[in-house]
Amino acid sequence: MRKFFAPLLVLAILLMVVAPVLIAEAPYEATMGLIQKIFYFHVPSAMMMMLSVFICGIWSIIFLLKKRPAADHVAVTAGELAVVFGLFVLVTGPLWARIAWGVWWTWDVRLTSYFLLWMIFVGYLLVRKYGGPGSDKLSAAMAIFGMANVPFVYVSVDIWRTMHPKTTVVTTLGEGMAIPFWFCVFAFLVVYSLVFVSRLRLEEQRARVEQLFLEASDI
């Protein structure tokens, strides 16, 4: 993990310096104007959260079935990042909605279901922290059920009438917007990987210290 850190850090800094320039140069959206540009951070954050949710869920399944602590380390890292990136989404969303819809928040299906998904992963972290011994398994179950909720979240926009833009908006972007958008997605992916490897290493170190402590107290 360590050898990835430096190159990822350099790449992440570079991308994050270029991203605002590209976003500033991108064409203005006809009706929303400047505020639409928040979309370049909002949507990639949401994508990273979804990625996190799946990583957390799948590695939780592996952990439950194979009982390998390494899988649990990956799951807890992804679980934390899901909450962090979910928070980005929940902060940037209302900022945009205040201008576009005139309200900070509306109890729309999409918003509600996303908020719920985020709550599930906050619950995941709470269980980990306060569940005591055996909380790794408890939280793994939470993550699996959280992942099972994703299809309902994703489909919700397309089934129910909702104010939130549909997910198809991404594939129908004009070239002027598509390039900065996918650049931002890539930049977020790199930042995500950077934080991921650092946090994963931290978790592994923590587990090792715990192991050493247990061995030492046996003597």
């Binding site: 279901s113 719920l116 709550m119 599930i120 906050v122 619950g123 709470l126 269980v127 306060y130 569940g131 408890l138 939470m142 059920f145 959280g146 909720n149 309902f152």
Partner: peptide
């Protein structure tokens, strides 16, 4: 913890 786990998942 029971409500903390149960409510977010069963709210749908």
């Amino acid at each position: 913890l029971l409500p903390v786990l149960l409510y977010p998942i069963t709210i749908p």
